[in-house]
Design a protein around this nucleic acid. Structure first.
Lengths: 229, 229
DNA sequence: GATATTTTGTTGCTACAGCTACACTTTTTT
DNA sequence: AAAAAAGTGTAGCTGTAGCAACAAAATATC
């Protein structure tokens, strides 16, 4: 377990809590580690969720699937990211999303009640945990709002520009790699792969970007930003 | 102030707190009432928000506007609904949305720090408030997820079917009124009004629904549900 | 009650994204 | 090293949603 402490340290849930106290805290929370193979479902939309999850290794996609078989990736989770935080506080506790591993993955599952309710044994960390949970929920909100932005944009080019500019900012460079392949990116933007490829080529022809595989280079930042106006 | 107690009673933030304690609590929270005229902006996307708002009277729309002048209504708030809850817990505290009154409106503004931090004076309500805030954030999450559903649907008919079925369920009847006019509904679904009208007529012709103004009647619930498959 | 203003419905045209189908490349498996 | 599989780019065709422009109805204003 100790080997995952650096991962937990980066997880917002444990922010402000000293590493030396993890052992006691984890016992107190009753967290358990579970392993999944690649392309395995963790839970489905509509399932009742009673745990908050922390990704320890591997990668998970958060998605919605409609009955026609179309899939829409809402988020991709890397180690130290969380899932299920949003559902835990609702009354119905039914997940609106499906989670599925993209690689072999290990997760830490924590029963939700243990987080929200103080354990009463003078375990002062809980107050910190609750404060952290609020930050997590708030930031989740911001992420979902960005996702809304992305989806409300009408044009293909606008969606791509939005995504690429954000990725560039997050990486702090005009040259960067994205964590998704073409098919996944299309699912994330909720567009068809073919139309997306076509537009990427056009944007390259127009001198806005350069690309090879998952690496992108923004050539004309101004021009790209103008796509969003 | 007392006259608003019934409104506050329905607000999730005050759930589980007795009406007799509102006076003390509101003083403790430092809440202030502000009035706005119709079509007045309360705050803009990008503004720094330090207050949580509760609608006391009137109606507010939560929206995003892009520079092209397109407007997208994310939610419509009635008395006892809240706004700003999602931003309050983030570090940047910059609002991703704009809020604007649709009628003459009164709101209760509460400084966010007063909610999150215990006032220390043995004011036990704060713990309840924090628990309530978590429920609010969780439910916000669910709402945003439904909004995502709506936007990821590809077809006009699918979006309308989704919206109308949900409205029907919420009203508990096949006949119901919606709170939005055509233009507002189009903005809410993020589609053009004309295309939406066209599709509504088609759905009527197909015997799925009947409509007059803001009142709708679902004639073929099964058929409507099939649009979503 | 008449006029102005807003809201709503309709039509033709156009642009753009989805689909199918296929060719090509890269990676994985054996 | 060969074969299989997965991923990627391109092109033509089609359907649908957006836009502009207008007509009709409902509401507000005088």
């Amino acid at each position: 377990m100790d080997k995952y402490y650096p991962i937990l340290k980066k997880c917002v849930l444990f922010r402000g809590i000293e590493e030396s106290k993890y052992k006691h805290l984890l016992g107190c929370l009753g967290g358990k580690i579970r392993s999944y193979n690649e392309d395995e479902y963790i839970f489905f939309a509509g399932d009742e969720i009673n745990h908050v999850g922390v990704v320890l290794s591997g990668r998970i996609e958060v998605l919605k699937e409609n009955l026609a078989g179309n899939k829409h990736i809402i988020a991709v989770l890397d180690p130290s990211d969380m899932f299920g935080e949003g559902i835990v506080c609702t009354s119905s506790r039914l997940s609106p999303v499906t989670t599925k591993t993209m690689e072999d993955t290990e997760v830490l599952l924590i029963p939700y009640e243990r987080i929200i309710r103080s354990c009463g044994e003078g375990c002062s960390y809980h107050i910190g945990l609750i404060q952290n949970m609020m930050v997590i929920l708030g930031e989740k909100n911001v992420t979902l709002n960005w996702k809304l932005d992305l989806l409300t944009l009408k044009g293909m080019r606008e969606k791509l520009a939005n995504y690429l500019l954000k990725a560039s900012i997050e990486n702090g460079s005009n040259t960067f790699m994205i964590p998704l392949n073409r098919t996944e990116l299309a699912d994330f933007l909720n567009v068809s792969r073919t139309s997306m490829c076509r537009e990427l080529t056009r944007m390259k022809d127009d001198g806005l970007i350069d690309l090879y595989g998952r690496s992108f280079k923004i050539l004309d930042q101004k021009g790209l930003a103008q796509c969003l106006e």
